[in-house]
C-alpha cells in the first residue's frame, strides 16, 4: 500500500494546472458574468424591483434606434466581406514569399496597433472640409470648392468615409489570422496538386481555400463581432450623423445618464453577436481535417 505522502504529492501535481487557471477563471467569471446579470437587471427591472419592458420599449421606439440598427448591419455587410477579400488577397500575395514579403506583411499589420479613435481621427483629417482629400482634388483642378464629405446632408459620403476608415484600420486582424492559417498549410499539398496538373486557380480553389477554412471562419467571426461594436471611428468622423448601436449605448449613458436603456442596447449587441457567431459556426463548419 502506498503511504500517504506520495498520494498527496500526486494530488498536488495533478491539481497544479487547475490552480494555475483558477485565477483567470474566477476573474473572467466575475467580469463577464456580473455585467451580464447586471445588464439584465438594468434593462428589465425598475429601480423599485419591478420587472418591466419599459426600457426595451424606450430603446425600440427611439427615433435613432431604427437607423442605428440599419446602419450597423449595413456597415457590417459592406465592411466585413470587403475586408475578407482584401485580406485574403494580401495573405496569398505574402504567401508567395517574394523578396521583402515579410516587411510588407508587417507594414500591412501596422493598423492592428492603432485604436479605433485614432484611426477615426486620421481619416477625419483626410475627409474633413479642409482636409487632404479636398486639397488634393483641388490641386488636380477637379474641384473648385471643398466637398462636404462629412455632413448630415450627405450620409452616403459619411458612410463611405467610415467604410474606408474601418477597412483601413481593421483589415489587418483578418490578414494576420489568414497568414497564420496559410503558414500551417504544408507546401506538400500544393506541390502534390501541381504534380497532378492543377492550375494555379484550381490549386487555390481546391486545395488552399478548403484547408484555410478554419482560419477564414475564425477571421469572419472575430471581425463580424468587432464590426458590430464599431464606435469610435464612427463618432470621430460623423458624430451621431450615422448612428450605430454601440454609439447609441454610449450616448444613452453619456448624454442622458440612462444606464437602463444603454444596457438594453448592450444586451441587443450581445444577442446579435451570439446569433451571428452561432450562425457562422453552424453553417460554415469545416469538415474534420486531420493532419
Amino acid at each position: 500500500m502506498p503511504c500517504t505522502r506520495p498520494l498527496r504529492a500526486l494530488a498536488s501535481e495533478k491539481a497544479l494546472p487547475y490552480w494555475l487557471i483558477l485565477p483567470t477563471i474566477v476573474y473572467v467569471a466575475v467580469f463577464f458574468l456580473v455585467p451580464v446579470v447586471q445588464a439584465l437587471l438594468l434593462a428589465f427591472r425598475t429601480q423599485d424591483g419591478q420587472w418591466t419592458t419599459r426600457f426595451l420599449m424606450r430603446m425600440v421606439q427611439d427615433i435613432q434606434f431604427g437607423s442605428a440598427l440599419r446602419f450597423t448591419l449595413l456597415l457590417l455587410a459592406i465592411v466585413v466581406p470587403l475586408q475578407l477579400v482584401t485580406a485574403l488577397f494580401i495573405a496569398l500575395l505574402v504567401n508567395t514569399r517574394f523578396r521583402g514579403s515579410r516587411t510588407f506583411l508587417y507594414m500591412c499589420a501596422i493598423p492592428l496597433g492603432i485604436s479605433d479613435l485614432a484611426a477615426g481621427l486620421i481619416w477625419f483629417s483626410l475627409f474633413t472640409q479642409h482636409g487632404y482629400i479636398n486639397s488634393f482634388l483641388y490641386g488636380l483642378g477637379i474641384i473648385e470648392r471643398p466637398i462636404f464629405f462629412l455632413s448630415a446632408q450627405n450620409t452616403g459620403w459619411v458612410l463611405g468615409s467610415i467604410v474606408l476608415a474601418e477597412h483601413w484600420r481593421a483589415t489587418a486582424i483578418v490578414l494576420v489570422i489568414l497568414v497564420a492559417g496559410l503558414q500551417m498549410i504544408s507546401r506538400d499539398y500544393l506541390e502534390a496538386a501541381e504534380v497532378f496538373g492543377a492550375r494555379p486557380w484550381q490549386r487555390l480553389w481546391h486545395v488552399t481555400l478548403p484547408l484555410l477554412k478554419p482560419s477564414l471562419q475564425s477571421a469572419l467571426i472575430i471581425r463580424t463581432i468587432l464590426a458590430l461594436q464599431m464606435f469610435a471611428v464612427v463618432v470621430a468622423m460623423g458624430g451621431r450623423m450615422v448612428p450605430v448601436l454601440a454609439g447609441e449605448a454610449y450616448y444613452w449613458y453619456y448624454l442622458y445618464r440612462n444606464a437602463n436603456v444603454a444596457s438594453a442596447y448592450a444586451l441587443l449587441l450581445m444577442v446579435i453577436s451570439a446569433l451571428l457567431a452561432w450562425g457562422y459556426l453552424r453553417f460554415l463548419r469545416p469538415r474534420e481535417v486531420h493532419s
Binding site: 502506498p2 503511504c3 505522502r5 506520495p6 504529492a9 500526486l10 501535481e13
Partner: peptide, 17 residues
C-alpha cells in the same frame, strides 16, 4: 512521472515520493 502504485528504490532508498 509519479507511479500510481508500487514502490521504487534506488540504492535501497525508497524514492517513490
Amino acid at each position: 512521472e509519479r507511479a500510481n502504485s508500487g514502490r521504487i528504490f534506488i540504492g535501497r532508498r525508497d524514492v517513490t515520493g
